[in-house]
Design a protein around this nucleic acid. Structure first.
Length: 200
DNA sequence: TTAAGTTGTTCGTTACATCA
DNA sequence: CTGATGTAACGAACAACTTA
């Protein structure tokens, strides 16, 4: 039998599969199972499988979790169990395996989440540090700009002031940094502008 | 083509055994 | 004795096939 689609849906999209299958409460009430009478006349027979049988089934489950009809019959014959018992054991074993896998997946996701939270905290504190550094730097720039502004207003206006306009920066011009492009004439040297010195 | 039957699956539950 | 836990077994609902 091929149950690939159903398996995939139920394994990968349990929520979808659950919606496909009507809920318990919406269907007919369950029949109660007969109690074990102990004489094997109707209820369950002896319950616990022997250690040897369990070991045998466990080894075979390790190879392949699915159970085809022929394999079931062979395992039943080899273990001395009823084929129905083998089928039930595999059903329950698959359920336990799935639960274990889910728990492992949960643990993995939880660990990953915790490390991401730690990283987030570190990044947030770094952002805070950088903001403080930016604030200090801006204050320093402002202080220097104020100082330069005071010095330039104290000097007399030169006829060359037009020639000493700050270079055009277009959209790259920074607001508040205009004064930084006024240079002290005695310290200035502009390549190709040597001729201007004879007028100073 | 199709309705009914068969077989195997998952999920939830029940009954029972065992142990602290 | 009792409650918690593990597990064999069961029933329901379903999908994929087969058959008449």
């Amino acid at each position: 039998m091929d149950h690939k689609v159903g398996d995939l849906i139920s394994q990968l999209y349990p929520a979808v599969y659950t919606q496909m299958v009507p809920k318990q409460g919406e269907s007919k009430p369950r029949r109660r199972r007969r109690k074990n009478t102990g004489d094997g006349s109707g209820g369950a027979k002896k319950r616990q499988l022997s250690a040897e049988q369990l070991n045998f089934l466990e080894m075979n489950f390790g190879n392949e979790h699915k159970l085809e009809s022929e394999r079931k019959d062979k395992l039943a014959a080899d273990s001395g169990l009823d084929p129905r018992q083998v089928a039930v054991w595999f059903q329950n074993r698959r359920a336990r395996w799935k639960n274990k896998k889910l728990e492992e997946e949960y643990t993995k996701l939880k660990t990953a989440h915790e490390s991401i939270v730690v990283e987030k905290c570190q990044l947030e504190s770094e952002v805070l540090k950088l903001k403080e550094q930016l604030s200090r730097t801006e204050k320093e720039i402002q202080r220097l700009a104020d100082h330069v502004g005071r010095v330039s207003t104290e000097s007399p206006t030169s006829p060359l002031s037009m020639a000493m306009d700050p270079p055009f920066l277009g959209e790259y011009a920074l607001e508040g940094y205009e004064d930084a492009f006024y240079m002290q004439p005695e310290n200035s040297y502009i390549p190709g502008m040597e001729w201007i010195n004879q007028y100073i």
